[in-house]
Each structure stands twice: as structure tokens, then as C-alpha cells.
């Protein structure tokens, strides 16, 4: 029975020789680039990252995002951006970039203890 596994959502997948997937295995074929999709769920909310998709260009990416990520009326506005165009902080920078605020607990509302009987807080 060792040639079966239940990992992955639909279970019972045969194991057996599989080729490893190496990072950056993108082929020489001219496949569509990856876009990240951000959706504003309703007015008053920020655009939130919901996932990604492949599209040949920005226009088609917006179309595909509309079809894929808002087909249940999830959003009122969509942003797409090429994944390659995102500049991110490196996880290694985490300490120098983010720890300075770690001690400024007074910026966080939970710092302030308010008695429960104070309304509208």
C-alpha cells in the first residue's frame, strides 16, 4: 500500500517515480507572465491580494481576474500587477526593517485598556 498517498485535497494519489520540480523551471516556451490580483471587496475596504493568474497583458489580466476572482460578486474593483514588477522586502531584512516598531506598542489600539462599560470604543 506504500504506493499510495492521500496528500492533496482529493486523496489517494499514486506515488511512484515523479520528477522533482526545480525552482525557475520556466521553459523557453513563451508562456504568459504571472499577475497578482487585488480585489476591493466592497466600498470602504482596501484592495486585498486574492491570488494570481496568467495573462498575456494587463488588459487580459483584468478580464481574467474579473472572470476568476469576482465571479461570485466578490468585488467592486480590481487591480492587477505583474508579479515580476513587485518589489518586496526580503525576509532577511525583517529584523532591521520591522523590529524598530515592535517596541512602539503605544501605536496599537490594544495597548490601551478600556473598561468594558465604556461604549463606542
Amino acid at each position: 500500500m506504500s504506493d499510495l498517498t492521500a496528500e492533496g485535497g482529493h486523496g489517494a494519489v499514486p506515488t511512484g517515480p515523479e520528477v522533482p520540480v526545480e525552482p525557475g523551471a520556466a521553459t523557453t516556451r513563451r508562456d504568459w507572465p504571472l499577475y497578482e490580483v487585488f480585489v476591493r471587496g466592497k466600498r470602504g475596504l482596501n484592495h486585498v491580494h486574492v491570488g494570481s493568474l496568467h495573462a498575456p497583458d494587463e488588459e487580459m489580466a483584468v478580464h481574467a481576474a474579473r472572470d476568476l476572482y469576482t465571479r461570485r460578486n466578490e468585488g467592486v474593483s480590481i487591480w492587477v500587477v505583474r508579479a515580476a514588477d513587485i518589489t518586496a522586502s526580503s525576509p532577511d531584512e525583517k529584523d532591521p526593517m520591522f523590529t524598530p516598531s515592535g517596541d512602539k506598542v503605544y501605536r496599537h489600539p490594544t495597548f490601551y485598556e478600556i473598561p468594558e462599560n465604556v461604549p463606542h470604543m
Binding site: G41, K42, V50, R72, N73, E74
Partner: peptide
Amino acid sequence: ETVYDALDSAHGGEGQWAFGTGFD
């Protein structure tokens, strides 16, 4: 935590948005 939490609360908070929301 996710955009879906917001949707959920925007649509009655019953986790039902996946059945479709805002249909007229």
C-alpha cells in the same frame, strides 16, 4: 485575515457568499 472574511461579513456573516452573493 482574508478578503473572504470581509465578504462574509458584508453578506450576512454566514459563510454563504460561496453560494453567490448580491443576486437579484
